Amino acid sequence: MTDSWFTEQGAATPPSSTATLPPSILHLRDVVKTYHAGDLSVTAVAGVDLVVEEGDYVAVMGPSGSGKSTLMHIIGCLDVPTSGTYELAGDDVSDMDEARLADVRNRRIGFVFQQFNLLPSLSAWRNVELPLVYAGVPRPERRRRAIDALGRVGLADRVDHRPGELSGGQQQRVSVARALVTDPDLVLADEPTGALDSVSTADLLALFDELHAAGRTIVLITHEQEVADRAARVVHIRDGRLAEGQDARLAAATRGLR
């Protein structure tokens, strides 16, 4: 987890024999998720292994029915594996009860959804402060942090506007600010461009680029190749299993040369 969202990057440290890998933010080991309905069993996730390191930017791609949504629910602590382990920033969340999972979701994961999930009666800053309300942060501190978050995503002049007074791209930026306001370990974006036009999509992906450059850890769920290409790494899911793709930015550059 970074101390600030947008920071200047220092000079690169030359590699040495004592250099260590970045800590793992997300580590899934042989994760299986099976659903039961009477005598019928369906395995949606079938033995997934995945490591996402601090500061990584990973896109998970897959068609409908591939297990993509189930995997997202597990990563977001909205569901638990049937078997296997899931560590988030070093803590095993595989067997946590619902109360503990809710606390993890609120404090350690910042969600960005396709449909924004903003409350229409609340101003932008009041929507952004909601995770802090649930965390028991005092109101003056909530307001300060929410307004700062909106400023960081380019909406300093829209803090008192309600969602209906904002464009789709601006509403998604409000949801990004809300995802960041708790300074989470992981930003989890589920089809975040699905409700946006091409201009707003490019704008949002540029914001994710900035967050990644500043050291944020991002996992993006998408079925769109052009969206996945903006990530540093792509993994593909099919029939509940993962396959690592080539470096996304390299792949995009290669297609551009054809």
Results as ranks from 00 to 15, higher is better:
residue 103 D to K: 08
residue 103 D to R: 07
residue 104 V to M: 13
residue 106 N to G: 14
residue 106 N to T: 13
residue 109 I to E: 09
residue 109 I to K: 03
residue 109 I to L: 03
residue 110 G to I: 08
residue 111 F to I: 02
residue 111 F to T: 07
residue 112 V to W: 07
residue 114 Q to D: 12
residue 114 Q to W: 07
residue 116 F to T: 14
residue 119 L to T: 09
residue 120 P to V: 05
residue 121 S to H: 05
residue 122 L to D: 03
residue 123 S to A: 14
residue 123 S to I: 12
residue 123 S to K: 14
residue 124 A to I: 14
residue 124 A to H: 13
residue 124 A to N: 13
residue 125 W to M: 04
residue 125 W to H: 15
residue 125 W to K: 07
residue 126 R to P: 02
residue 128 V to C: 08
residue 129 E to P: 09
residue 129 E to A: 14
residue 129 E to F: 05
residue 132 L to G: 08
residue 134 Y to C: 05
residue 135 A to R: 10
residue 136 G to T: 07
residue 137 V to I: 11
residue 137 V to F: 04
residue 137 V to Q: 02
residue 139 R to H: 03
residue 140 P to F: 06
residue 141 E to I: 13
residue 141 E to N: 02
residue 142 R to E: 09
residue 142 R to H: 06
residue 142 R to M: 04
residue 144 R to N: 01
residue 144 R to D: 05
residue 144 R to H: 10
residue 145 R to G: 08
residue 145 R to I: 13
residue 145 R to T: 11
residue 146 A to L: 03
residue 146 A to I: 05
residue 147 I to F: 00
residue 149 A to P: 00
residue 151 G to C: 13
residue 152 R to H: 09
residue 153 V to K: 09
residue 154 G to T: 15
residue 155 L to I: 09
residue 158 R to A: 15
residue 161 H to V: 12
residue 162 R to E: 10
residue 163 P to I: 05
residue 165 E to D: 15
residue 165 E to A: 15
residue 166 L to W: 06
residue 167 S to A: 09
residue 167 S to I: 09
residue 169 G to K: 10
residue 169 G to V: 05
residue 169 G to I: 14
residue 169 G to L: 12
residue 171 Q to C: 15
residue 172 Q to L: 08
residue 172 Q to R: 06
residue 172 Q to F: 10
residue 175 S to Q: 01
residue 176 V to H: 07
residue 176 V to C: 03
residue 177 A to L: 04
residue 177 A to Q: 10
residue 183 D to T: 15
residue 183 D to N: 15
residue 184 P to S: 11
residue 185 D to L: 01
residue 185 D to Y: 07
residue 186 L to A: 09
residue 187 V to W: 03
residue 189 A to R: 09
residue 190 D to K: 06
residue 190 D to C: 13
residue 192 P to D: 06
residue 193 T to K: 08
residue 193 T to L: 07
residue 194 G to V: 08
residue 195 A to W: 01
residue 195 A to S: 15
residue 195 A to E: 12
residue 196 L to K: 14
residue 196 L to Y: 06
residue 197 D to W: 05
